[in-house]
């Protein structure tokens, strides 16, 4: 018999098994214990930490190598024909078409990627939660209006919309973040709305009402804490999406403008020269891939770790 439980009711002992009083761990402790055993999760975490460290240490790296991010090394960083040089002692990851150090630019690019990823995810989760919570908890016409709004936003063509918006406002970091938020909150809102509709019917919400709690209090005190786990999981999965969005926009020249170093922009520059300078494509692409993969895998592991339906008894 596999103990199958209601996703939110992680607290019930599986049928047929006694309630465990010895070492009753809180759901959080249990999840952390599971994560620590999960090699993929730990490896992903290491990649994420390395990326964050790289981003934070970008100015240090520039000082240490003596290669400021925008400095063009026309003598040492370019061949006699004006082409970029490959990885070597002075330039570990080679240089780009202007003779700039790829390693330093990659580190600065990580700052943009992670900044965009973090800011837009936090904002999207905030907007999505507020809208999903209101729609799910209030029901009735607010729900219908908000759901219609979500569906409409989801049906907008992302790139077309982004191109027109940038044409109106002009490219830049702010507009990139705004565009990403605009297209990221909808799935969060939908997930939250579904969870809230299920939570709303739970007896502890009725208990809160029977005590005289206001609707705002019920939403904040009783429902929101039960959403933390799904929000953390979906938020983690949203970060790589935002990183890819930003890279896409920058690749198309719609995002952050040169000479600011971004991974998408570096890829775009490398795309012209990939026959002679493979490193200009491979390293930024590898960075995007590593970061998104790490976040995706870590998000999956988080979801598994918090999942009460996870089969506890594994045949050995």
């Amino acid at each position: 018999m596999i103990p199958i439980e209601d996703p939110v009711r992680s607290d019930i002992a599986p049928p047929g098994l006694p309630s465990v009083q010895v070492a009753a761990r809180s759901p959080g402790q249990l999840a952390v214990a599971r994560l620590r055993q999960d090699r993929v999760a730990m490896a992903s975490l290491v990649v994420i930490v390395v990326m964050v460290a790289l981003a934070l240490a970008a100015p240090l790296l520039a000082t240490w190598t003596g290669h400021p991010v925008h400095r063009q090394y026309r003598d040492t960083g370019l061949t006699e024909f004006g082409l970029p040089v490959g990885p070597r002692g002075e330039f570990w990851l080679g240089t780009d078409q202007l003779g700039r150090d790829l390693l330093v630019r990659l580190a600065y690019g990580a700052r943009i990627s992670l900044l965009v990823g973090a800011v837009s995810t936090v904002a999207a989760v905030g907007v999505g939660t507020a809208i999903g919570l209101s729609a799910g908890f209030l029901g009735g016409w607010p729900d219908r209006v908000l759901s219609w709004f979500i569906d409409t936003t989801l049906s907008l063509p992302f790139l077309l919309f982004a191109i027109s918006l940038v044409a109106l406002v002009g490219p830049g970091l702010m507009i990139t973040v705004v565009v990403i938020i605009l297209f990221s909150w909808c799935p969060i809102a939908r997930v939250v709305r579904g969870q809230v509709i299920a939570l709303r019917e739970r007896e502890f919400v009725e208990a809160a009402r029977s005590l005289g709690a206001s609707r705002l209090r019920i939403m904040a005190v009783d429902i929101l804490p039960n959403l933390v786990v799904p929000l953390v999981v979906y938020g983690t999965l949203l970060v790589p999406q935002a990183v890819v969005f930003e890279a896409t926009l920058s690749f198309l020249g719609l995002g952050v403008t040169p000479p600011t170093a971004t991974w998408g922009g570096m890829l775009a520059e490398g795309a012209d020269l990939y026959r002679v300078a493979w490193w200009m494509v491979v390293f930024p692409a590898a960075a995007v891939l590593a970061l998104t993969l790490a976040f995706n895998l870590f998000g999956d592991s988080l979801r598994d770790a918090f999942d009460p339906r996870r089969v506890e008894a594994q045949p050995r």
């Binding site: 009711r9 607290d11 759901p27 739970r202 007896e203 009725e206 809160a208 005289g212 005190v221 804490p225």
Partner: peptide, 23 residues
């Protein structure tokens, strides 16, 4: 109605469902 809550209280059926697991 809120004042009435002081006088009338409810004990619920499901001891698992009526307590918020996250509090």
């Amino acid at each position: 109605l809120r004042a009435i809550r002081r006088d009338v209280q409810v004990i619920f059926q499901d001891p698992y469902g009526s307590l918020n697991p996250r509090r």
